[in-house]
Design a protein around this nucleic acid. Structure first.
Lengths: 254, 254
DNA sequence: GGCTCGACTTGATCCAGGTCAATCAGGCAG
DNA sequence: CTGCCTGATTGACCTGGATCAAGTCGAGCC
């Protein structure tokens, strides 16, 4: 697919939503030309994060939302004993930081899974623009609603009883997100570790590792460390629906 | 605690946030007197729902957010096979319906767990007020952020390996919410069924039933059908933290 | 009262996935 | 190159919770 932008482009892209390939998927979606310029004004220079670099930590004061421009992030919470629960993986176009709006402090953490470029949206500037551009308010609510819906999806996956089904859904969903980004949905590059995947799904690493092997044996996947090729998308989709006889998930019985 | 309001009060409360005991916990929090009146204008007459009554269904067009005034709701999604996953239980002051903002259609369902009274906030009116009252925009974002944080909490609980810990956290959190509502946090009335609790936690009903019995044997709870008394809050809190050596939840290991 | 029905509890059994442990494959410093 | 370290895989085993199967309890209804 499209390689890194040339060096010349980079400087131009620095603060321009209109020239960004992600604009349809990102905050500017549905925002018109003039208003888009105003939005551009609210965006601070991009930030680069190396693998493992923290975008924000639990307890940090809230001052901005962040858009993944390239690379990927994970968000997670850690309890007092240091036990971690991964909340999500974030690809280009995803916006993170909404957790802090309620209390003006972040109550989760965001960390780069690989070298990543991030657009920073200082919230005070964003609010300024929002008051001038009503459409942006609506769009902001839409985006945070998307976040809520995404959390619901995660909940549904974790509620599943069959680990294989969980992993299948995880891979399928990643594949779908790749396609929305115009990438080849059958060639995944898992920037997160097996530990991260296991944690995200509520499993242990060994189980995830075994499942990758099993799916490879079944001919569904070809697994080579972080490079996963989906050989049989049809089978994968099938596995997402299989064993839907999962317990306690019968019809609504108020 | 406080019984039903008298008949006389009811008519007055009908559309007045300022006289509502929940106003601190609800949308009006932090909104000043004059602005509060404007907000009141945006609130349609309350709706009553009987047990099992639907507030909205999957696919319904979005036109309002809803606040629980009394009673309780559950929200859930159902897949094509009818399998249900409960997303949350909602007590007075909670706002539901944010799932629909992204797509202008509800992608989950809300149903009353008992006879409940609901404030309806038509979104077009709300947007009207929002444009006049900047503080409301901020407050709306705050509230939806609270929703995101609440989903995170749910994710963390589901990620736990020990079922007993999950149930303990569930009960503790319910107790905390009772206290925020000025109710006795040690006397819970579980308006949801055991099936609902099991589903919410990703367990089966038998396991939940056994856990209630076990916690009763341990002297932590006194269980009488839907009435649950927390006899030893200290022990309950302990159980929420115990077995924190849960797998795949070790320290962050990029 | 006696009947039915649905929510809940309890017991017996089984197995998916967690636990423990050994091994392997890359990446990197020296 | 060697040694080390971390991530990933694989095997052997064991247990917590799912499954299956009987009850029990209370509410509603005739």
């Amino acid at each position: 697919m499209a390689d890194e932008s040339t060096v010349l482009d980079l400087s131009q892209l620095r603060r321009s939503c209109s020239s960004c390939a992600l604009s349809d998927l990102c905050l500017p979606a549905g925002i018109g030309g003039d208003d888009l310029e105003k939005l551009d004004m609210a965006i601070r220079d991009k930030r680069m994060l190396d693998r493992g670099g923290a975008l924000y930590r639990d307890g940090d004061p809230f001052h901005a939302l962040y858009v993944v421009r390239s690379g990927s992030l994970k968000t997670f919470v850690q309890d007092d004993t240091g036990a971690m629960q991964i909340l999500g993986f974030h690809l280009p176009g995803d916006i993170v930081g909404f957790d802090a709006l309620a209390t003006d402090r972040h109550v989760s953490q965001a960390e780069a899974l690989e070298r990543s470029s991030i657009c920073e949206l200082p919230y005070d500037r964003l609010q300024q623009v929002t008051s001038e551009v009503p459409a942006l308010h609506r769009q902001l609510m839409r985006v945070v609603s998307r976040e809520v819906v995404e959390e619901h999806r995660h909940t549904v996956v974790m509620g599943r009883q069959q680990a294989q089904e969980q992993l299948a859904i995880f891979l399928k969903s990643l594949s779908d997100r790749y396609q929305r980004l115009q990438r080849d949905g059958s060639m995944l590059t898992l920037s997160m570790s097996r530990y991260d995947i296991a944690n995200y799904l509520g499993l242990v690493v060994e189980t995830v590792s075994r499942l990758f092997s099993r799916l490879e044996e079944m001919g569904v996947l070809e697994v080579n460390r972080k490079a996963v090729t989906i050989r049989r998308p049809d089978l994968l989709a099938e596995l997402c629906r299989s064993s839907s006889t999962s317990p306690s998930r019968q019809r609504d019985n108020g």
